[in-house]
Design a protein around this nucleic acid. Structure first.
Length: 286
DNA sequence: GTTACGACCTGCGAGC
DNA sequence: TGCTCGCAGGTCGTAA
């Protein structure tokens, strides 16, 4: 499941293999993959044809190919999206959704997505101030902890301004971006916080500790090529990361906590799961 | 305005 | 063997 480190690995691959190339042909093989492009597949493919990719950029879990003329192809990988750089004669993947071919006849770019939660959209780049150009469709997404301009205290204040549980706030991409279920659980474990703790009970110091932990764990994951549980997350060359071997909480139900030895528990959370240590991360009273 | 929750979607594994 | 069901989970729209 791609979160920030996994998306960053993909972005680096796109920058290396796609930037500087000009699109010769775009092909949409499944309409749901471009459902957020309201003008439809014909508009998407026509506007992409002849466009030059200037750079690959990212904010949180969104990435985009910056094109000339202040346009961008915005991508979200959802749960199972992959950006693959493949030879043109390679067999199509079963879940190939969108294909871009380039005028240098080199490897093509494929958007493959089994569960179709991800997608692409062609969007205009908008100046949101401070000389920051963002695709308009993701202007509401907050800076992520790997952003050089990320401000820890601003993010902590945003989390504390909500009246909800701390993990719900952590997953809210308008407060701090890039954190998904896996790294939320890992950051909470490192900060010894239960996911259901109310945000108003979060002190400034504990908030800083929590977001620093999130940043640390995501940097560590990035260093190992990301977290993979199956073949759903791969880099542009189709290779998986191996940070899942370093996880302390997520998916560790029943296994001893690496700090105190208590068995990690799994609790239902927002129609999914939350993993925590019952001793290190006691449930808040009430 | 803010928060909570269901829908979207497909493949896999468990249970019968 | 084959069927059903639950689970995985990020984002968005809608309801409260």
């Amino acid at each position: 499941m791609p979160e920030l480190p996994e998306v960053e690995v993909v972005r680096v691959g796109l920058q290396a293999h796609v930037a500087g190339r000009t699109v010769r042909e775009a092909e949409v093989l499944h309409p749901r993959a471009i459902r957020r492009h309201v003008l439809g597949a014909d508009d998407f493919t026509q506007r992409l044809t002849g466009a030059r990719v200037e750079a690959a950029r990212r904010r949180g879990k969104y990435l985009w190919l910056e094109l000339s003329d202040k346009e961008a192809v915005v991508a979200h990988l959802g749960m199972s999206g992959q950006m693959l750089v493949q030879p043109e004669d390679a067999p199509d993947e079963k879940h190939l959704r969108v294909r871009l071919r380039f005028d240098d006849d080199g490897p093509e770019l494929r958007f493959v997505d089994q569960r179709t939660f991800g997608g692409l959209v062609l969007d205009d780049l908008t100046d949101i101030g401070e000389r920051v150009l963002l695709p308009g469709s993701i202007a509401h997404i907050a800076r992520d902890p790997m952003d050089p301009a990320f401000d820890l205290d601003t993010a902590v204040r945003a989390l504390r301004s909500r009246r909800t549980e701390i993990k719900r706030a952590l997953l809210d991409q308008t407060l701090v971006s890039g954190i998904g279920n896996i790294y939320a659980d890992e950051a909470l474990w490192r900060a010894k916080l239960h996911w259901a703790r109310p945000t108003e009970k979060l002190t400034l110091a504990k908030g800083r500790e929590l977001l620093s932990a999130a940043s640390d764990v995501m940097n560590a994951a990035l260093g190992q090529g990301g977290t993979s549980f199956d073949a759903l997350y791969v880099n542009v060359n189709g290779q998986s990361g191996y940070f899942d071997r370093s996880l302390d909480a997520y998916g560790q139900e029943g296994l001893p906590c690496h700090r105190c030895g208590s068995p990690i528990r799994r609790e239902p959370f927002m129609n999914r799961s939350s993993f925590s240590c019952p001793r290190c991360q006691p449930r808040p009273r009430g």
